[in-house]
Amino acid sequence: MKVIVVAGTRPNFMKVAPLMWELARRPAVEPFLIHTGQHYDQRMSRLFFEELNIPSPDVDLGVGSGTHASQTAEVLKRIEPVLVDWKPDVVMVVGDVNSTLAAALAAVKLGIPVAHVEAGLRSFDRTMPEEINRILTDAISRFLFVSERSGVENLRREGISGEQVVLVGNVMIDTLLACRRRSEGSPILADLGLSSRPYAVLTLHRPANVENPNVFRGLMEAIERLGQALPIVFPVHPRTRAVLDGTRATSNHNLILTEPLGYLDFMKLLANARLVLTDSGGIQEETTVLGVACVTLRENTERPVTVEQGTNVLAGLEPKRIVAAGLDALERPLRQERIPELWDGQAAGRIVDVLTADSAHVL
């Protein structure tokens, strides 16, 4: 059974890692990895392949940066001849980035079944490009592998149900649990002088947050006020760096700016944080499993299980609400929440089990 796995961005790499590990263990499966090149530099791409033991891509499409339309179009153009040449039985896509939708669309137009890992997640906010990618990818996929119960219900409401929808758990948590021991060996806390001090972690990358000057200014105002309570480590995404430089945030002594971190360093930083402030979907999931208080800098989340069972609080974008949520989290002892259903490190195995069991129908 020939399976093509497609990845394009940093969040994708943590999702494809356990899938590639699992596919390599199955003698009846021949895996083939395509990197679209949507993220391409050392810190956003190559370092993750090295740290997560992901095999070198069989093909790198080299798409690079660009608008949503240009990225999607370039992936479509460049991946089609690869699919025609290799003739896979299944194309597996993960997450909700432009590479996900483009690869799925190219495959389905060639009559190749698509498997979508992390299907069914919905923020119900169609101003988010990721939401459009999620809805469209789910609509054309043959296999819908779901990470939490809300995804099953969302797909059912959209008229997608039955055997093609399977709750399998969370592949990002597969990676987290598999790498936990190695990440504890990271020297990042000592390097930042935080070995014996409480600290918070901040991540910001969504265009709606960093490219709107009024929104970004308000977020930085809230971060400055929370920084009076404890230092805040801020690994800066390249998109955010472009708007951060020249602002007074760069001279805030309580805000520790770093370059984007590798997976092991970042997991060590996250696991030992007193508080995390983020607009990332995946970090909401990781903090839930790690038992770390998370304040999400968005008005919605496509991962409601992190709010229902985890430590995640939706604070929105209003500075006073963010500060109040952060201070409240710091005052409360951490709750010991139960880990969401099937977030046990075995999601990739379940996914490959379904594909191989269904291979007679696929082939």
Rank of each mutant, 00 (worst) to 15 (best):
K268Q: 14
N300A: 13
T278L: 00
I351E: 01
V94K: 03
V295Q: 09
D265W: 04
H35I: 05
E221Q: 15
V75G: 11
L264H: 14
N133Y: 07
D328F: 02
N212D: 15
K268W: 00
E74H: 12
I283N: 05
L33G: 06
G151V: 00
L105F: 13
L327F: 04
K87D: 13
A115I: 09
T287G: 02
L297C: 00
L136S: 07
F49W: 11
K15T: 03
V6L: 05
Q42Y: 11
V362Y: 03
A17I: 07
G246H: 04
G159C: 08
A229D: 14
T296P: 01
E211K: 12
I79R: 04
I173D: 00
A249I: 07
Q71K: 09
L155H: 04
K109F: 11
T100V: 08
S161M: 09
F48S: 05
L33D: 08
F32C: 10
V171C: 02
L47G: 08
R335T: 14
S251G: 06
N209S: 08
A222Y: 06
R335C: 06
H253F: 10
L219Q: 08
L327Q: 14
L277H: 08
N133L: 06
R134C: 03
R126Y: 15
K15F: 02
V5G: 06
L230V: 10
V59I: 15
T288F: 03
K87F: 08
S161H: 12
I232A: 03
V168Y: 02
D125C: 07
V114C: 07
S186Y: 11
A115D: 12
P18V: 03
G291D: 07
A357S: 14
E22N: 02
G310C: 04
L33M: 11
R303F: 01
D138A: 06
R180Y: 13
G8R: 05
R321Y: 10
S161G: 14
P57R: 07
A17D: 08
K77H: 14
V82D: 08
I223M: 12
V91K: 07
L189K: 10
G282T: 03
I223E: 05
E318M: 12
I112Q: 10
S56F: 07
R43P: 02
L269K: 08
A229K: 13
N312E: 09
E259K: 12
H68M: 07
T67R: 02
L52D: 09
G151R: 01
A347T: 01
L355A: 02
P57Y: 06
E224Q: 13
E224H: 15
N312I: 00
K109L: 11
R321P: 00
Q42I: 03
A347H: 00
N254W: 09
A357Q: 15
A178S: 13
K2Y: 11
P18Y: 01
T306K: 02
T250C: 13
S65R: 10
M14A: 12
M128P: 11
S186L: 06
Q228R: 15
A222V: 07
L76G: 10
I135F: 11
K15C: 04
K320E: 15
